[in-house]
Structures are given as structure tokens and as C-alpha cells.
Design a protein around this nucleic acid. Structure first.
Lengths: 216, 216
DNA sequence: TAAATAGCTATACAAATGTATAGTAAAATA
DNA sequence: TATTTTACTATACATTTGTATAGCTATTTA
């Protein structure tokens, strides 16, 4: 699930107002435009909000007038496309070290947003990118440094390649098999690695749908 | 033919400056921004030009600051795309069976155009897509069905993975090595395949820069 | 040839604009 | 519980900004 808690409801409202103004007018609102729309009687309230939004990485501003630009992060937050871009790409967050306990989409996990052709994503939301560490899936020709496109979901079918969190460990990429005794086996495709058998807590984060690799 | 006679050269320059500023900054230039770029010492010169451009239907303005919008007419005049549509994809042709003799980009070779993020292509033109057939490059974890992003070029450095045409055969994907006797070795990365040694005609078509695979 | 238009410079100014100061109140956090 | 953060109001102010006034020259049009 996409975490929106990084912004308060009010901050999110201001961001949404900026988005809608740009979508309608193709240029940025002034501080006082936003204040009027939201019913503020002072420009300072908006100015403060914008400063917070900039600090949190949701907008970019120049010192000049009407120069607010939305970042990919803000578009992700609002769940919309760039108002001025007829989108044939979706921006997927590249997640860093996913560790148990933290929400998977926590801000500190998001390294950057990378545009992926919507022909690949199918415009399905809740997908993310993950960089492979190690060679445990080399039997599936997935190697260290590969980027995975993962569809976020918390269930899996037998044999699917999934991203999962186990106990206090970081995220692992493995093939999922549910045994008859209800335990789950996470199998590496590199025979040098033993299957991981989990009887307790296992959090499936998503299913790998594509692999992308830049040849060095 | 696009009629440009409706604008003078100077007016066209101003329009182009507006276009480029918006393309670079995602917000409109101020009158003084344009004046500085064009080397005017007074804002009035630009202001007059913008008034003419608006009267002639090339731009739209609001009374507020930085609210210039380009019309379709101006985009057509400049021969460009909407500047707010940052081209974040390139459409690369997916080539079918590349055979010797035919031009590689011949229309009958192009199966479809697939949008690839410009973050991957780097906006470098002359790239194409190729679907891998066979397992001869499995040592590089490139397997049957993988899609390759190939940069079209007709030279290669030792060790690079290239797409090449040999004699009357179809295109092959191999690692390129030039020997001291000037012969060229095309090596598979699957040890089951012998290197191909070429002393005669070899047409290098491009260099593989990325791999993309959809997990079945 | 005269008048109009194009293409500027130089200066001025009012309105638009972002932000600062100062303060209040509620909610969240430590 | 004390402190910080959030979320504003009200006013003020320095810049930014678009445009106006006045004037100039070169080119085009009638």
C-alpha cells in the first residue's frame, strides 16, 4: 500500500490544489491564488505549506514567481499523472534496502523514481523497482545488479518469484512454494543456496514481473 | 510546408526563446528573462513582441506573471512538441528477423515500436530492440525471449556484446574479440557453442546496452 | 514621398508576488 | 507535563513583473 502519511492532510490538500491549478492553467498558481482557493485569509499560511512541501521533496521552486514544479514524488503521492504529460510511462519508485518492520514504501526506502514504459507496467499501480543483491537467483538468469519490476501484493502462487520479508532480515527474492504442512519454502534457483523454510512470519511484498539489466 | 511567413524572424526568435525556456524550466519566462537571453537592454522590446505574438495567435497570456502558454499554432510554427511534454520515452523499433542483404531498419523488419524510458536510452537515437533466440549467451544470463536494447553502430571494442550479421546468416548476438591476425572471433557465453571465427565479411549492427525480460 | 510598422533603448511605476515579523490556537510528540 | 510541530491570521515590505511613456532608427507599405 502506498504510504501517504509523510504529508499531513492539509499539506496534501495544498499539493492537490497546486496540481489542479497547473492542470487547468498550464502555469503555476501564485501563493495568493492558492490562499483564495483554500479560503486562507493570509498568503503566509500557503507560503509555509509550500516551504514544507519543498523541504519534503514534493515540489521544486525558484525564487521567481509562479515557478512551482511538481516532482515525481508528488505525482506518486497524489496518484495522478503529470498534468501536462500525456503519459506513456509510469514512474516507479526504486526501493533501497527493504527491512522488516519498516513500511515498504517508507520515504527512506525510496531512492529515486524511474520512468518505465506503461507498455511494461500496463498502467497497473502499486509496482516498484528493486535492485538485486547476490546471485541466489542465477538459475533464473537474475544476477547481481539487475533491476526487478515488482507488482506489490501480499499473496503468491506456487512457483512464482516473489519479494518477501523474513523475520528481521532484509527483503529476499525467491521462488515461492507452499508445502502440504502449511510451511512455506522460499527456494533459490542457484543450487548453492539451501531453501528457506518458514513456519512463522513471512511477509510477501510482491511478485516479480520483469527484469531489467544495463550491460556494463 | 509550414507557413512561417506570418511571423518575422525576430518574432520567431522570441517565440523560440519562450519555447526553450519552458522546455528547460517547466514554467514561463518573465519579460526580463527573455530580454536577457536575447540581449535586449529594455523589457519593453520583449513586451511589444509578446503583444504581437498574442495578437497573431501564437501565445496566450494572462495578466499575471509568467503565464505565457504556447498555442498549437506556435508549436506547429516551431516544428516542435509541446515543451511541457518532456520526452521521457523514446519509441524504439522492435526488429524481427534481421537477415544479411536487407537494410536493418527496412520497414518489413519493424514489428512494432515500443516506448522505452529515455533514462535508459539516454535520448540517444539509433537504438533498436531485438528479441533473443536461443541460449548461446546464457553465460551472460541472456536467455531465449529476452529483449535487447541495441545501440546501432558498426564498430565494437573487444569484449563487447554485439549484434552482427555473418555472410548469409541471420543476425547473431555474441561477444566481439579482434585477434592479432585481424580475424574476428564472435564468442558465445554458453560453453556448448564454439566461437565463430570470421576472416571475411562481418557486419556489426550494434552494441547491446541493456536486457529486458518479462517473467512468464 | 509620406505614413505606418518593426524593433528597439531608457526610464518609470503600479500591481503582483514571495516572504518576513509577530502572534494565536490546537494537536502531536517527548 | 512541557515542548515542538502544525496551521493558520494580520500586517508589512522588498522584489519581481508587466506595461506605460517617450523617443529613436530602419524598413515596409500605401
Amino acid at each position: 500500500m502506498v504510504k501517504k502519511e509523510n504529508l499531513t492532510q492539509k499539506q496534501s490538500n495544498v499539493l492537490k490544489t497546486v496540481y489542479e491549478f497547473i492542470a487547468d492553467n498550464s502555469y503555476s498558481p501564485s501563493v495568493r491564488n492558492i490562499a483564495e482557493i483554500l479560503g486562507f485569509s493570509s498568503p503566509k499560511g500557503v507560503s509555509d505549506h509550500l516551504a514544507v512541501l519543498e523541504k519534503k521533496g514534493y515540489i521544486l521552486k525558484n525564487s521567481s514567481a509562479r515557478s512551482i514544479r511538481l516532482t515525481e514524488k508528488s505525482l506518486w503521492h497524489l496518484g495522478v499523472q503529470n498534468p501536462s504529460i500525456k503519459n506513456n510511462v509510469d514512474y516507479l519508485p526504486l526501493l533501497g534496502n527493504i527491512a522488516a518492520g519498516k513500511p515498504i514504501f517508507a520515504e527512506e526506502n525510496i531512492q529515486e523514481y524511474i520512468p518505465i514504459s506503461s507498455q511494461i507496467t500496463g498502467n497497473i499501480k502499486c509496482q516498484f523497482l528493486l535492485t538485486v543483491r547476490g546471485d541466489s537467483m542465477s538459475g533464473d538468469n537474475i544476477i547481481d545488479g539487475d533491476m526487478l519490476i515488482v507488482k506489490a501484493q501480499n499473496t503468491a502462487e506456487n512457483g512464482e518469484i516473489v519479494v518477501a520479508l523474513i523475520e528481521d532480515d532484509e527483503a529476499v527474492v525467491k521462488r515461492y512454494y507452499k508445502r502440504e504442512d502449511e510451511a512455506v519454502e522460499l527456494r533459490s534457483s542457484n543450487p548453492l543456496y539451501e531453501p528457506i523454510v518458514i513456519k512463522g512470519s513471512l511477509w510477501i511484498q510482491g511478485k516479480v514481473i520483469a527484469v531489467y539489466r544495463i550491460i556494463p
